[in-house]
């Protein structure tokens, strides 16, 4: 359970990082918080020859208000997300998600950028950023670009990052008035990766659902948006919300993949149960908030 030998470089600027990528290609691996990469290295599932530590790169930390959105630096750690007053006010779903991620000793080191680049299909954040319609801000040898979160995840541990590119920040639109959000998951033990989970956002106008984004994790080969299920919610009166059409649409539009413990049929069942529970919980919390 010891990592294979590697060369460690703490890069201090993007140019230095690009030179190393140019020289080593895929053998160079970026390390952010290391909470997924180091276990993979310990088990020799990852054997980078060069480890590029980006903790010292400028411009990757901090959580800022940019007007319509909150810009979260890629190196922001889970505890930073949880303790950010800006996020608590404008994007409470992120704070709610952190409580479900691993354990305190992991939350102190794990970063949002590292999590998204790693793209574990059962991890919370890839679903959360899709539910929030966030953009992933990327910098690489060709300059900067920004990708909608819904297009960033390509498969299990596969994302839209070319060699030499890294995530620099995540830009999350501020929640409009009338937004409800929630996250729930089924786990075998507290802190585990989810057997099935959902991160949902409902935008309510005059008591009716005007827009819905339902992201599921731990169900398919990646975190996915259930667009047909979301469409069944739009137009419904919140107080009389019927989840059944959404559950039905969800069951047909997603293609669950088995993990170590649950097969596709179980996953399809679990995400249906969770969808009903989470929607009911969101409706009930909105009633309390207004009443």
């Amino acid at each position: 359970m010891k990592a294979a030998p590697f060369d460690y470089v703490r890069v201090s600027c993007f140019e230095e990082m690009q030179e190393i990528f140019a020289a080593h290609g895929d053998d160079a691996q970026v390390i952010a918080g290391g909470q997924s990469l180091i276990p993979a290295m310990a088990m020799r599932m990852a054997r980078p020859s060069v480890l590029l530590d980006i903790a010292g790169l400028p411009g990757l930390s901090g959580i800022e208000d940019t007007g319509d959105a909150i810009r979260i630096g890629a190196m922001a750690r889970y505890v930073d997300l949880r303790e950010s007053a800006l996020l608590a006010t404008h994007v409470p779903l992120i704070r709610d998600a952190v409580a479900l991620i691993a354990h305190e000793a992991i939350r102190s080191r794990g970063t949002i950028g590292g999590n998204l680049a790693h793209a574990d299909p059962a991890s919370e954040m890839p679903a959360v950023v899709q539910a929030l319609d966030a953009r992933i801000d990327i910098r690489g040898p060709e300059g900067q670009r920004s990708v909608p979160a819904a297009e960033f995840f390509l498969g299990t541990y596969a994302v839209d990052l070319a060699p030499g590119e890294i995530i620099v920040s995540v830009t999350v639109p501020k929640a409009p008035a009338g937004r409800l959000s929630g996250i729930q998951e089924f786990v075998r033990r507290s802190g585990d990766y989810a057997s099935a989970g959902g991160a949902f956002v409902l935008d309510v106008e005059n008591g009716r659902i005007a827009a819905a984004r339902l992201a599921c994790f731990g169900v398919c080969d990646r975190a996915v948006l259930a667009e047909q299920a979301a469409a069944t919610l739009v137009g419904q009166e919140l107080a009389a919300l019927d989840p059944e059409p959404a559950v039905k649409a969800l069951a047909s539009e997603i293609e669950p993949t088995a993990d170590l413990h649950n097969g596709p049929a179980t996953k399809r069942h679990l995400i249906g149960v969770l969808t009903k529970r989470l929607l009911a919980d969101m409706v009930s919390r909105s009633g309390k908030a207004h009443g």
């Binding site: 460690y8 180091i38 276990p39 903790a55 305190e104 992991i106 080191r109």
Partner: peptide, 14 residues
Amino acid sequence: RIARGCLMFAIQAE
């Protein structure tokens, strides 16, 4: 803050 001593290389703790 508490962290896992096995999920950090010593050289990162510089």
